[in-house]
């Protein structure tokens, strides 16, 4: 039995408790097929086995709770991890931290739609100490986009929900790659601004 089949069985047996557990675990740490599960729950809602609005509230709450868990873990223990892994020796890590703090709003919001990149960004946000309220607000706003989209697609297309699982994953992959490009481009520009040669005539040493 595949992981997804097992998750779907749990959803049918334990409903909202299973939904909360699966979405929470997926957003906190584990690489679970959460999008596929949400598509399925949307389809189950169309068949009145789940309530759409209760499912939406549960999914958003679980997503936020999982994201905050990952963020707070690295926020609390991040410095020790950074020293243990000697990440602070790498200049790129410094650039990345600075960029994530400067563009926290947009990166937190966009990575909520970016599949597994969301998990990585939760840990990084805590590690580089993105302000809590900034993280929480844009995490909540971002989580009001992806779960409802998945649930709605499942609701509309019913038993054909599985046809949309791969396209949905590809779309989140596109967003993930676009966010990484954005962050790297900003870092590249930041390096250029810091280390560009001074204008001639501006003084020399």
């Amino acid at each position: 039995m595949s992981i997804l089949s097992a998750l779907l069985t749990w959803l049918l047996l334990y409903k909202y408790v299973a939904l909360f557990a699966i979405v929470y675990a997926g957003s906190a740490l584990l690489p679970l097929p959460v999008n596929a599960a949400l598509l399925a729950v949307g389809a189950f809602s169309g068949e009145h086995y789940f309530n759409f609005w209760i499912s939406l509230v549960v999914a958003v709450a679980a997503n936020c709770a999982g994201d905050l868990t990952a963020y707070l873990v690295t926020r609390h223990w991040g410095e020790k991890v950074t020293h243990a892994l000697r990440l602070d020796r790498f200049r790129f890590f410094g650039y990345l931290g600075e960029e994530l703090r400067n563009d926290a709003a947009i990166t937190v919001f966009l990575t909520r739609q970016a599949g597994y990149l969301s998990n990585i960004s939760n840990f990084l946000a805590g590690l580089v100490e993105v302000p809590f309220l900034t993280f929480f607000f844009f995490d909540l706003v971002g989580n009001l986009v992806e779960p409802p989209t998945a649930l709605t697609i499942g609701y509309v297309f019913g038993s054909y929900w599985s046809n949309f699982s791969l396209p949905f994953d590809v779309a989140t992959g596109i967003i993930a790659v676009a966010v990484i490009i954005f962050v790297l481009a900003r870092i590249s520009r930041s390096i250029a601004r810091k280390y560009d040669p001074p204008q001639s005539g501006a003084g020399q040493s």
């Binding site: 039995m1 779907l8 049918l12 189950f44 068949e47």
Partner: peptide, 13 residues
């Protein structure tokens, strides 16, 4: 219908 589905779900669907 798939093997992971429960009978109470089938009844409802």
């Amino acid at each position: 219908i798939q093997s992971w589905m429960t009978f109470d779900y089938l009844d409802r669907a």
